[in-house]
Each structure stands twice: as C-alpha cells, then as structure tokens.
Design a protein around this nucleic acid. Structure first.
Lengths: 236, 236
DNA sequence: TTGTTGATATTTGTATACAATTTGTATAAT
DNA sequence: ATTATACAAATTGTATACAAATATCAACAA
C-alpha cells in the first residue's frame, strides 16, 4: 500500500491545474508544496521539470515554476490548430483502437454521462479529458499525442468555465456532446475512420461554439436611445 | 563568461542524440555523465526529466534514462503524420514570421548550404534541424511545436543515415533540397502561405523518397539463373 | 542443464545542508 | 521626491550522504 508519493504528487498537481484549482499564471512555491506532498524539494523539482515537459508548467531560470497561462495569443492558436489534431487523431484511433482501449473509452464515457446527470462540473471536465486522452492513446502515434495533450490541457481548463449550464438550452448542448461521444465510440468500434473524422468535426464545432458564446455572450439590452440625454448623443 | 553548465549539458546531450553519437536505445549512466559534464547527479537528473519531456529520452521508474528508440512502429507513425504537421507549421510561418526570424532562417540556410558544399554530414543534419526548428518558431503555435519537435528529432536522426551522398545523383538531390529551402524562405518573406505549403509538400516528398530509397535500395543483380547448378534448381 | 535462492554490488531515488541568485528594504545621495 | 546603493531575507540551484530498489552472481536443488 506504499504508493509512490512522487507519482501521486504529479497526478494531483495535474488535476489541480486542469480543474483550475491552481489558476493559470500561478507561481508554485517549492517549500510549501514539498511540505504539502510530504516530499523533499529534489523529487518535487523533478516533478516540475516533467510537468513542464508535458505543457502544464513553464520553468524560468532562477525564477520558479509557473502554471502555463491562457492568454489571448494561446486561445487564438488553440482555435487555429485544435480541429487539425483532433481529426487526425480521431482517424488513427478508428484504424488502430484495441478492444481493451474501447472498454476503457466506454468506461470514461459512462463516468462522463453520470457527471453530466449530477451537474458535476469538475467530473464532466475531467472525464471528458480522459475520453479524449484515451482516443489519443488509441491513435498510438507518438508524434501527434504531444500536441493533443497540450490542446487537451487548455481545452479542459476552458471547460471549467463553460460546462456550468446557465439554462436548459445550455444543458441540452451538454447532452448533445454526450451523444456525440457515444457516436464516436460506435464509429471507432466499427472501424470507420471517415465517420470518426466527421463526428469529431461536429463535436469540435459544438465545443467551439460554446466557448465563443461564453467569450462573446448576448449583449445586454441596448436602451441607450431611451436613457441617453440629447446632449450626450451629440457630444464630441 | 560563466555559462550555465546545466544548460550546456542539455544542449550537448541533445546534439549527441541528434547526431547519433549516442544511439537510439542507449541507457544513460548518471554517474558517468555527471562526471563528464562536471555536474552532480541532481541537476543532471533534472536535465533528463526535461529531455524526456521534449521526446529525446524516455524514463522508467528505477531503471534510468534511455534514448528514445526508432523502431518500425515509430517510423510508420513518422511517415503518417509528418506532412500534416510540416504543412500546417509552414502555413502559419508564412503568416506570422517576424523580420528577425527571417534573418535567423537565412543564416541557418547559409550554414546548411556550406555544410553541403563540404560534404559535412553532421553539419547538414544539424543546420537542417535548425532551419525547420526556426520555421516552427515562426509559426509561433505552442500546440503544434511539440509535435514538430518530436518529428524533427527523428527526422534529423534518420538524416544522419541518408545524407551521406553515395553518388552524384544523390548529391544532386541534396542541392535540390537546398534550393527548396531558398524557395521556402522566399515564400515566407512574401507572405504566401499557400506557396509555402506547396513547397513544404515537395520538400517532404523529396526527403521521404530519400529515406525510402535508403530503406529499400535497388536490389543486387539477380544472377541466380546463371550461377545456380541444375541440382539446386530442382531441390525440394 | 535449468532454475531457485540469497548474499553482495551497483544503480536509482530522496533528504538535507550549503551555495548562488534574486527579491525586498532601508538609508544615503542627488 | 526620486533614484542609487548596500545590506538582509527569501528563494532557487547544487552537492553530498544516505535509503531503497534492482541487477549480478555464486551456491545449491531439481
């Protein structure tokens, strides 16, 4: 029962970053964390290096580890490249998935749906992450997974924001996403790469629209014409 | 002039891996290397973790660091995904390259051509690596560069094998590759993404053909019909 | 020969002390 | 009041000693 503290630390830090428990841009305190995880600084720093390699952190000489930030530039890059990678990975997953992996994918999907039913935002984000990570494993292409992993880190962090259903319409979109997962599983099982690509495209479009909707919501009612005095209308 | 030993170690190890000075699959000896680089094991291990994150090494619990291997499976994956990434990165490079980066790219290309003129195989491989790495920086997309980097690691290692020109025809192909670099630079400078994609496609085709030619060379002359005695012909 | 066991050597992992660097703060000079 | 400078505190980086795990190999049994 002596489970590796270092590995536990790595997994927990990942989760805390993905769930925004540790926010983007946060500088990590070696001393504090080494006490929290009951590790000395040496192995903790090795964990940092590794997480940096996976894109969770960025390291700067003599300046500690920082959780990778999510600024405008990275959002732009994210939208620019996500579909390319997701589609390619989806295609390969359909070609190469093993029965064992399909079992794992179904399991993740069951957990995802259950989290959706319980309006468990964290659970949804994390199991959605697992789902797409498993699809990545199915593709089994070591040249594509690094990009996929980085996309998923930020995709999952964004999910934290927009998986909170604000109304029944948004709840409906979550069910749609969930159904798309089921369809993707089915297409992978049937070994239909083209179908998986098409479903992945749709799945991405839905996710993308949700994020855009969050970033640029419906404007508040514009009653300027009523409230603004004439003087202001002609000002400047 | 007190240049960081750790950083020097990281750069040198990368180079030794890329030039096949340390062969794929080699297990690295912490004690030996820490003496060679005049570092204690602690920072050396951090270098390992980082290089593992970048795809140069793979780490196994309680079993040291191994240089990433190049087996049949990875070759297949390489050919499957290289063009996708190279083309996407090329397109973005044309859109986003800064003047400073173009200067750096031209410098790498000059060094590459010079190495070619001197039949300097290492130089060619390394400056070709630099060239494409700079194109990656031009793209400036943190979600694509991880995959590009991994592709370049193995592409460069393969180059070590096939950049040795065996005859004038093969030498000619090197000049073609060199000219393609020039054309790519020109297209990037002119901000013509579609042109860069097309040139990248041609550049990749050339490289791919060279590798295939190396893996599956022209068969030796088949003179079995002449040499084989009648007895053997009818054996079994 | 093949395989198992256990002692020993080697290698890998961790804690801690210390060195180097950066950050913060108080005081002096302009 | 603002900038410089010097010193103190905190943080990051490295070396080393020790602990844990794994590999090696000889002795012995099947």
């Amino acid at each position: 029962m002596k489970i590796n503290k270092k590995q536990a630390c790595r997994i927990d830090l990942k989760q805390r970053i993905l769930t925004l428990d540790i926010e983007p841009g946060t500088v990590l305190d070696e001393t504090l964390l080494s006490r929290q995880y009951e590790l000395s600084r040496t192995p903790l720093r090795e964990v940092f290096q590794r997480l940096a390699g996976e894109g969770y952190l960025t390291l700067e000489e003599n300046r500690g580890a920082k959780v990778s930030s999510m600024d405008i530039a990275s959002m732009r890059n994210f939208f620019q490249s996500a579909l390319l990678i997701y589609a390619a990975v989806g295609r390969l997953a359909a070609e190469n998935a093993t029965p064992r992996q399909i079992v794992a994918l179904k399991s993740a999907q069951r957990s995802f749906r259950k989290a959706g039913e319980n309006s468990d935002v964290f659970g949804m984000a994390m199991f959605n992450h697992s789902f797409h990570q498993i699809v990545g494993e199915m593709a089994g292409n070591a040249y594509l997974t690094p990009s996929l992993s980085r996309l998923l880190i930020d995709h999952t962090r964004m999910s934290q924001l927009f998986y909170k259903p604000k109304n029944t319409q948004e709840q409906q979109l979550i069910w749609t996403a969930c159904d798309q997962h089921d369809q993707i599983i089915e297409a992978i099982e049937k070994r239909e790469p083209a179908m998986v690509v098409e479903l992945t495209r749709e799945h991405w479009a839905l996710s993308r629209d949700r994020i855009e909707k969050y970033v640029r919501p419906d404007p508040l009612p514009n009653d300027l014409d009523v409230d603004t005095p004439e003087s202001k209308k002609h000002a400047i």
